[in-house]
């Protein structure tokens, strides 16, 4: 029930973003739009039976959102770095690449955390997640392999995000 309520509130927030501004020229609330949004969010929360959130406990903990904001900044830095890295490799006449698929180990276990980690790895320098298994092995395509040892590779690829994600998806 709580998970449906959380999904309803989130959907309603997205609706308000879609129909912005919420007040018309005279300053009155646009009640028709907002009630239509409530109906649509109710529909979305009622129909989508397998839930968006794994659990609602701790969803209101403000520290998680602070970590999320900090993580966004870190991720943005690595994404920009990744793009200059890839653009350099593409534009260089000799194309300095040394690709391969390596496997790394992560200590994260929840499905959301593994997914967030895998998507972050895909967006950051020279790495692309090919497969993530539920017991914590990630198979990563690396555009410039420096080591095939799982421990060593994990220090290059995984460790910079794992700490943040384990706090966000606690």
């Amino acid at each position: 029930m709580m998970r449906r309520l959380a999904l309803f509130l989130l959907c309603f927030a997205v609706w308000i973003v879609l129909v912005w501004p919420p007040r018309d020229e005279t300053g009155a609330l646009r009640l028709a739009d907002l009630s239509a949004g409530a109906l649509a969010a109710l529909l979305a929360a009622a129909v989508m039976r397998e839930f968006t959130f794994e659990k609602t406990r701790g969803l209101l903990d403000p520290r998680r959102y602070l970590w999320l904001a900090a993580y966004g900044v870190v991720l943005l830095f690595y994404i920009v770095k990744a793009n200059f890295d890839v653009a350099y490799r593409v534009l260089h006449p000799a194309m300095p690449i040394r690709p391969g698929i390596v496997k790394v180990r992560t200590s994260l276990r929840s499905a959301s955390a593994i997914t967030a980690l895998a998507n972050s790895i895909t967006l950051t320098p020279g790495t692309l997640t090919v497969e993530a298994t539920a017991d914590g092995w990630l198979y990563v395509h690396w555009i410039h392999v420096t080591t095939t040892d799982p421990e060593e590779a994990a220090r290059h690829i995984v460790s910079r995000f794992e700490w943040f994600i384990s706090r966000i998806f606690a």
Partner: peptide, 11 residues
């Protein structure tokens, strides 16, 4: 994978 690749742990 491309023939210049060094490893394929997945396969």
């Amino acid at each position: 994978l491309w023939e210049g690749s060094v490893a394929d742990a997945y396969a």
